[in-house]
Structures are given as C-alpha cells and as structure tokens.
C-alpha cells in the first residue's frame, strides 16, 4: 500500500517533540483540571519551581554530579574488565568453557539482592555504588561483547590470515574493529542499566545523589521534587543515549547500522 520513505532528521525530531508534548498536555489536563490531587500529581509549573528550589539549596548540581560520577566510574570499571573477557570467551573454546557457566550463574543473581551485602562490605559511600554498578553490568556485558565478537564473519579473519596476518594482528586489525559497532550498542544498553542500579542503591542507602534526593523528597511528601528527580534522570538517559549514538556515528561510520 505504501512505501516507507525515510523520515528526515528534522521530521523525526518533530515527531519526538510531539510525543513529549502529548504527555505534557495530558499531565497538565489531569493536574490543572483538578482530576488528580496535588498530593499525587504535582502541577508541571511546581516541578519547574522544585528544580529552582533545589538549585537554591545547592543540591541540584552536586547531587546530579555525584550520581553521574558514580555511574561513570562503576560502569567504566565494568567495561574495562568485560570487553577483554568477552573477546577471550568469543575466541577461545577453553575460555568459554571456563568462564561462561560462572558468568551465566552470576548474571541471574538479581543485583538488587546484593545491595545488603555490598553495604556490609563497602559501607554507604561511593565504593558501594561502584560495586553495585559493576556487579549489575559486568557479567551481562562480558557475554554481550562475546556475542558481538562472535558475530564478526569468520571469513574476515580467514581472509586476513591468507593475507599474512598473525593471530595477534587478526585480533587487533579484524576482530576488534569488526565487533566495534556491536560493542558500541552493548555499551549503550548497559550504561542504561548502570543508571537503574545506581538509583536503586541510592534509594537504599546514600547521603547524596539523585536516588537519595527522591527518597528524601518522599519522606517530606514533596512530590514536586520526586517528579523533578524523575524528569532529571530521564533527561540524563536521553543525553547519554544521544552521546552514544553520536559516538557510534563518529567511530564506526562504515557500519551498516549507520545511514550513509
């Protein structure tokens, strides 16, 4: 019936804005129209005021930075360990035999259940947040990277071998660049999880950060601040996603996933 012409970037941005506008409109109707009590659904403008209040209190930027910092460190540690391990699992039968079952076991442990244990080991400071994020992303990421490396067509490595490449050169010049688009996707997905686990950890025990901010707001029934915290986390997620997509476009412009 119809073909699907590619939407231009401006067109797509317009559609995205439209969906946000629709949510905002429904929210406004429900709150300003008095359908839902202020206690349960704050008015949009009071959420904006809550942002201003928290900024005046000096917690908006410092709490945001604390959370961003925790995600970056915890997740980077996981990446630094998981990418080489994934490469190893994908290319060594013995490596897969040794590591894969252990990782499969570990990744089914809900990381949330490890929060009490990590509190015991690391206290409520940044170290515990790093640990939770690491535990929540490392195992899955190692398996995802292994899959991405295994998805590089075998004949690429074989072609390189008949052009004179050694095993080490095949790793460096074929497998790693070949797996990079997949690995970029894996990174983008797991950084999202890192945010989730961080907020959980901060809700349980912390003395700064966005999860902590939301928890405190709940204690004071400051629903406008809760919403402000949620909006902020959402915006940070959007920004992260955008950053990764831009980085993918810059790092792997050759990928079939990137439009020419």
């Amino acid at each position: 019936m119809s073909t699907h012409p590619k939407a231009s970037p401006a067109h797509r941005a317009g559609l995205a804005l439209l969906s946000f506008a629709a949510v905002l409109a429904a929210w406004s109707a429900a709150s300003y129209g008095g359908l839902v009590k202020d206690l349960f659904l704050p008015k949009p403008h009071s959420v904006l005021l809550a942002f201003a209040d928290m900024h005046r209190d000096g917690i908006l930027l410092s709490y945001t930075w604390d959370s961003v910092y925790r995600v970056m460190v915890g997740w980077s540690l996981a990446v630094a360990a998981a990418v080489p391990l994934g490469l190893f699992i994908a290319t060594s039968r013995r490596g897969a035999a040794v590591c894969a079952p252990l990782i499969e076991f570990a990744r089914y442990l809900p990381v949330v259940a490890l929060v009490p244990l990590t509190l015991l080991y690391f206290g409520i400071g940044d170290g515990q947040k790093f640990a939770i994020i690491f535990l929540g992303t490392f195992f899955q990421l190692a398996l995802m990277v292994a899959d991405s490396v295994a998805a590089v067509p075998r004949d690429l490595g074989r072609a390189a071998a008949t052009l004179g490449a050694s095993r080490a050169q095949i790793y460096r010049m074929v497998l790693l660049p070949g797996a990079l688009p997949g690995i970029m996707d894996d990174l983008r997905i797991t950084v999202g999880w890192a945010w989730t686990y961080l907020v959980v950890a901060e809700l349980v025990a912390a003395n700064s950060g966005l999860g902590y901010m939301i928890l405190r707001a709940q204690r004071f029934l400051a629903i406008d601040r809760i919403f402000a915290g949620l909006v902020l986390i959402g915006l940070l997620g959007l920004a992260t996603d955008w950053l990764f997509k831009t980085a993918t476009r810059l790092c792997v412009p050759w990928s079939e996933k990137v439009d020419a």
Binding site: D155, L156, P177, G178
Partner: peptide, 10 residues
C-alpha cells in the same frame, strides 16, 4: 572467498 570478505571499516 565466495562470501564477501572486504573489511567494512576500511
């Protein structure tokens, strides 16, 4: 090879 084995990033 029969399959296409050019390195797509080069």
């Amino acid at each position: 090879f029969q399959s296409y084995t050019l390195f797509p990033w080069l």
